[in-house]
Design a protein around this nucleic acid. Structure first.
Length: 433
DNA sequence: TACTCGATACTGGTCTAGTA
DNA sequence: TACTAGACCAGTATCGAGTA
């Protein structure tokens, strides 16, 4: 067994490095700053090795079934902490939980579980034949999608947790973190941040829909500006004021996936890749999530407030936008203005399949990146320029089976339009660098 | 001391397995 | 089949750390 005592290791190495580097004043030379990571990395390696050794000890003990204790509420680390007093619950569960939070913010609000549970997700073997282009091929078992997510989840796991990826306690803590993050975002967007978001929100008047033969409550498409909290106060008022802007098609009595004004910078009613995912709401939601409720104000003026408190951005050293973050923010915006009361894969009131919509949005962004299309390059420049102006530029970010003809048609239309978008030539790219 | 924000305990509803 | 206890889930309230 390892000796008593556990290193204080409560946040990520990257975040630690960020904090350290920020401490350097401009008077420090580039060489001094460049040397800092290697100095700290040596210390980090030592701590990591120690941590790994203790984890192995704890896990060996945890495998003895009789030692396991009953599981308590909100305790996802049974079988580990109680049999290894040298290893606290915080060091195991908290770290895994944090990665779950990070995953929701930067990758996806949901895991592609298919017919399995979260443990089977993390015990899934990496498939060497996995093809990223097939990630959203639409298989019902979500195997390809899971492979894509699995790679992302491994990417964000710290090195010292990665060897324990297949352990049940890690899976449960990870998902706990995911749920907690979704829960926090729900409360933040609908409660704490709403006033800040509405302060800077200027919407474009939307033409009224064809009002012929209405059998259901009809949203008021031409809602007066600016948006007020009262309009968002209830499920019915949200539907009345914003349904059209989140894609409600009166003629088809359903929500569109792509023709969504609140996803377009110019609130276009038709899909326009040059404006897609550029609405200020998406950027405000993202800053709310990573930087706190008050950060929504000023983001479009590139003067979003950085809280002095510990924020997700600081904790996870978030310095650029990711495809998953953009797609997730699109979902959060639609949900925020929807009649839905709870946040889930499928809207409890609207029936919107947020999970499918998220995958479709992510698919198009990734496809645009893969095809080196200009619209997606400029999208990341736009996001990073507004959300991370201090970091100077973008890093370029880092299937669904439609259930009816309308969605198939809309999807085919979106795909055709995507393939018509101009691409970036090598010469253009060199010019940008 | 006030403020912000992440973490977590708590609450109420739902689901499920076990039992009579 | 009905009942019950426990587990689970989503959302909310509160606490505590960090900062000016």
């Amino acid at each position: 067994m390892s000796p008593p005592g556990t290193p204080n290791h409560s946040h990520d190495f990257n975040a630690e490095m960020q904090d350290i580097i920020v401490l350097f004043t401009p008077s420090k030379s580039g060489r001094e700053i460049a040397q800092a990571p290697s100095i700290c990395a040596n210390e980090q390696d030592r701590i990591t090795q120690d941590l790994k050794r203790r984890l192995i000890d704890a896990e060996n003990d945890a495998d003895i079934a009789r030692k396991r204790l009953c599981r308590g509420r909100n305790n996802r680390t049974e079988g580990v902490a109680e049999v290894s007093p040298n290893f606290t619950v915080k060091e195991l569960g908290v770290r895994a939980r944090r990665q779950g939070r990070k995953f929701v913010i930067l990758c996806s609000p949901w895991l592609a579980l298919g017919d399995g549970d979260v443990e089977s997700f993390f015990t899934t073997e990496l498939d060497d034949n996995y093809d990223e282009e097939m990630r959203f091929s639409g298989g019902e078992d979500e195997v390809d999608e899971r492979q894509g997510q699995l790679r992302k989840s491994i990417d964000i796991l710290p090195d010292d947790l990665e060897p324990f990826r297949t352990r049940p306690w890690l899976a449960k803590s990870f998902v706990d973190g995911m749920k907690s993050q979704c829960s926090n975002t729900h409360t933040r967007l609908r409660k704490h941040a709403l006033q800040h978001i509405l302060t800077d929100l200027v919407t474009v008047p939307t033409p009224a829909p064809n009002a012929a033969s209405r059998s259901t409550p009809v949203p008021d498409a031409a809602a007066p500006e600016p948006v007020t909290p009262a309009q968002l106060a209830s499920s019915t008022s949200r539907f009345r004021h914003f349904a059209v802007r989140i894609g409600w098609r009166e003629d088809k009595q359903k929500y569109s996936i792509w023709h969504v004004p609140f996803l377009h910078g110019n609130e276009s009613e038709r899909l326009d890749y040059n404006q897609l995912f550029r609405h200020s709401l998406l950027l405000m939601v993202f800053t709310c999530i990573i930087r706190g409720a008050a950060a929504a104000e000023g983001v479009m003026g590139k003067v979003s407030q950085h809280s002095k408190a510990k924020t997700m951005q600081k904790m996870f050293n978030i310095t650029s936008t990711t495809p998953g973050a953009i797609a997730a923010c699109a979902i959060w915006v639609i949900w925020l203005f929807s009649a839905d009361k709870s946040f889930g894969k499928v809207g409890d009131v609207t029936g919107i399949n947020y999970y499918d919509h998220f995958n479709l949005y992510l698919e198009k962004i990734l496809e645009g990146l893969r095809l080196r299309q200009r619209w997606v390059r400029e999208l990341f420049l736009y996001w990073d320029g507004h959300v991370f102006p201090e970091w100077n530029g973008a890093r370029f970010g880092g299937g669904v089976d439609p259930d009816d003809d309308d969605e198939r048609e809309e999807l085919a239309e979106a795909t055709a339009a995507l393939h018509d978008m101009p691409v970036v030539s090598d010469d253009d790219e060199e010019g940008e660098d």
